[in-house]
Design a protein around this nucleic acid. Structure first.
Lengths: 205, 205
DNA sequence: ATAAATTATGAACACCGTGTTGACTTCTAA
DNA sequence: TTAGAAGTCAACACGGTGTTCATAATTTAT
């Protein structure tokens, strides 16, 4: 009597309807009424599963982030090994690919949530997840070769993270996103290029 | 009879109240009722000035962006000259300073609007303004020295813009923002540094 | 197969904020 | 001083929310 078939069924129905909606309109403009109407479910039923639309949103986000975290956990140990052996490699290819693939699997929802119509707080949640990982990489880097008196420490982590986020967001929100492998290459190549050099990259005419 | 004293007065009062509110809570959580109550003005009066709270928001944003644009227009001609003479200087210091100063003047509101509690679309508006300027710089650069087969063209502009935006946002949303001159230096220095080098900058212990 | 438990339905409800309207008062510019 | 613009106040319909309750439908366990 614990798990009723319908329980999971209608919950998934509601989630699916919400995802359909968030792809088209602002989260703000989506009401419980819209969701249940699209799902063909009574409005009262919604409140059996979620306390309100924010609860629904957060459950979706949590699930996405958990899946991503699990995918990461499965490659991190070997990535750390790699870092210890080769001190020049900073972001192991495998790690990046795994991450991007996982994101690519859910690209519709993730893109919607990351867009300006989505949830402004989701960017931060994803950023926090990346931050945790990046700090692991950071801690492996023994040789700090460069010195700088201009750029404060707090800007550094922030900028590296934002660079990553920008690429991911731009990637997902474009009409036809590249395959994860391509983006992985872009990220790894990008790490070697300064903005000044970036600006001077030859334009195709 | 065209310009009544009260007209401007209460309008400013409403704007000021809204700004006070947006610093503390989500735009979504701010109602017309909140604004008028704080302003000590009848709720009906609000609708004499604005059609709704979005109208108010957009008027504030438009004003901010116009002021910024004007500030930029006043230095751009000389900046262009500078670019033509010195082909290595890409972002003239004067241009950056002028921009940052203007933003710094309105840092409270701008920070609030750019934060995750603000208006997600405002980031884009500011970005569009920067984009226009950056394209002017781009067009001045004759020598494309570097070639790259990995990073696609559409990523380049996007990444340069986002780098700038990230710095501005991080700057404004920190507790005690640096003086504009300092941030200008950071931006100009940052342009020479690749992410890989950035990560290796010595940490102070 | 049936009973018990769980879940969904439908309708009603109070609540709150919105945007509008109309009669009235207050202010201010000429 | 007076016309006209701006603000006040109260009332209104509207729409969405979250809750409740009686009822129906479905599933699970026995």
């Amino acid at each position: 009597m614990k798990s009723d078939k319908r329980n999971q069924q209608t919950e998934q129905l509601l989630i699916a309807s919400f995802i359909d909606l968030i792809k088209e309109k602002n989260f703000n403009d989506i009401g419980v009424t819209d969701i249940t109407r699209l799902a063909g479910v009574n409005r009262g039923t919604f409140y059996i599963h979620f306390s309100d639309k924010f609860d629904l949103l957060h459950k979706i986000e949590r699930e996405l982030l958990e899946k991503l975290q699990e995918a990461l956990n499965s490659v991190i140990p070997t990535a750390i090994e790699q870092l210890k052996n080769d001190s020049f490699e900073i972001l192991p290819y495998k790690l990046v690919i795994k991450t991007l693939n996982q994101i690519y699997n859910d690209r519709d929802i993730v893109a919607a949530l990351l867009s300006s119509n989505g949830d402004p707080l989701f960017v931060n949640k994803l950023k926090d997840l990346f931050r945790k990982e990046i700090r692991v990489e950071f801690s492996q880097i023994k040789d700090s070769v460069f010195y700088d008196e201009v750029i404060p420490q707090d800007y550094i982590e922030e900028m590296i993270l934002n660079n990553l986020m920008s690429i991911v967001i731009h990637w997902l929100t474009k009409e036809h996103p590249e395959q994860p492998e391509e983006v992985a290459k872009i990220i790894l190549r990008y790490r070697e290029v300064s903005p000044d050099e970036l600006i001077r990259i030859k334009k195709e005419e």
